[in-house]
């Protein structure tokens, strides 16, 4: 696990229909320490997914720099694990093979990589599902596999793009609690994108409020861990922090 530094990041692209340049991300700077959990929160179209895609290396940035452990990002790579909103599991691979995919690409032997995969599946209570295909699992289970698949490759930074947006509300709460538990156990460096203010405050050490491609404010979340919804639902500090973030995001 390493730290992540973003300096004056910007993204401008040419819109052929409007015939003008559009700036999706303006001069964003952010420092994420090793083992920190940072949530970027903002409404649709605020540029949060664009930022994540640039960090992942899926799309090029047009200004500034992105450094992972001091080294600049050039294209996608296994040092940055990604969890997708649409899960993006390989339908033709079993759950076990999906989780073992990263180690397989690194050239880890079959016995060894299956051991790693089983270990991580156990972490997310997925041992039973190892031999099944993704389409046989519920959405919540699929995204557990998605998270564990990214972690099993031991990336320096874990990038999560609205990973729980397409599961039902109850499952989402369970997944959020499990994610905080797994994070505490493994302490990966995480950047988590969401539009859900309560989710951001629940998960993060620090929440970055984003609007129209600019960082509005960074808010430290000093809630104790382990966190659970039962405890935090009526917590005054949690309500205060969520209220502040919500106000920020809505006012902009």
């Amino acid at each position: 696990m390493k730290d992540l530094t973003i300096r004056n990041l910007s993204k401008t692209y040419f819109d052929p229909y409007a015939g003008t340049n559009v700036t999706a991300v303006h001069d964003v700077s952010l420092k994420v320490e090793q083992g920190e959990f940072v949530c970027i929160v903002g409404p649709s179209g605020c540029g949060k997914t664009t930022i994540l895609n640039m960090i992942a290396g899926f799309i090029p940035h047009t200004g500034g720099e992105i450094l992972v452990g001091g080294r600049p990002v050039k294209g996608p790579g296994p040092d940055r694990g990604v969890v997708f909103q649409s899960f993006a599991l390989f339908p033709w691979r079993t759950v076990l093979e999906n989780v073992a995919f990263g180690p397989k690409m690194r050239g880890v032997r079959k016995v060894e990589r299956e051991k790693i995969a089983h270990e991580f599946l156990a972490l997310a209570k997925l041992t039973e599902a190892a031999g099944r295909y993704p389409n046989e699992l519920s959405g919540g289970m699929q995204q557990r596999v998605g998270v564990v698949r990214a972690l099993a490759n031991e990336p320096d930074v874990l990038l999560m793009d609205e990973p729980f947006a397409s599961v039902d509300a109850q499952t989402r709460m369970t997944l959020q609690e499990e994610l905080t538990r797994i994070w505490q156990e493994k302490r990966p460096t995480v950047i988590f994108i969401t539009h859900d203010v309560a989710e951001a405050v629940f998960l993060a050490n620090r929440v970055v409020a984003l609007s129209k491609g600019r960082v509005l404010e960074e808010i430290d979340v000093d809630l104790p861990r382990p966190r659970s919804w039962d405890a935090l639902n009526d917590d005054a500090r949690f309500k205060e922090l969520s209220g502040r973030v919500l106000q920020l995001v809505r006012s902009a």
């Binding site: 992942a56 290396g57 899926f58 294209g75 996608p76 790579g77 296994p78 940055r80 694990g81 990604v82 997708f84 649409s86 993006a88 599991l89 390989f90 995919f101 990263g102 690409m105 690194r106 698949r149 990214a150 490759n153 990336p155």
Partner: peptide
């Protein structure tokens, strides 16, 4: 094929041929 599958494979370290 959804582009996210290409991206997932890339960020798990797969080369173009793989």
């Amino acid at each position: 094929i959804p582009i996210t599958l290409h991206r997932a494979a890339q960020s798990l370290g797969a080369s173009r041929i793989r």
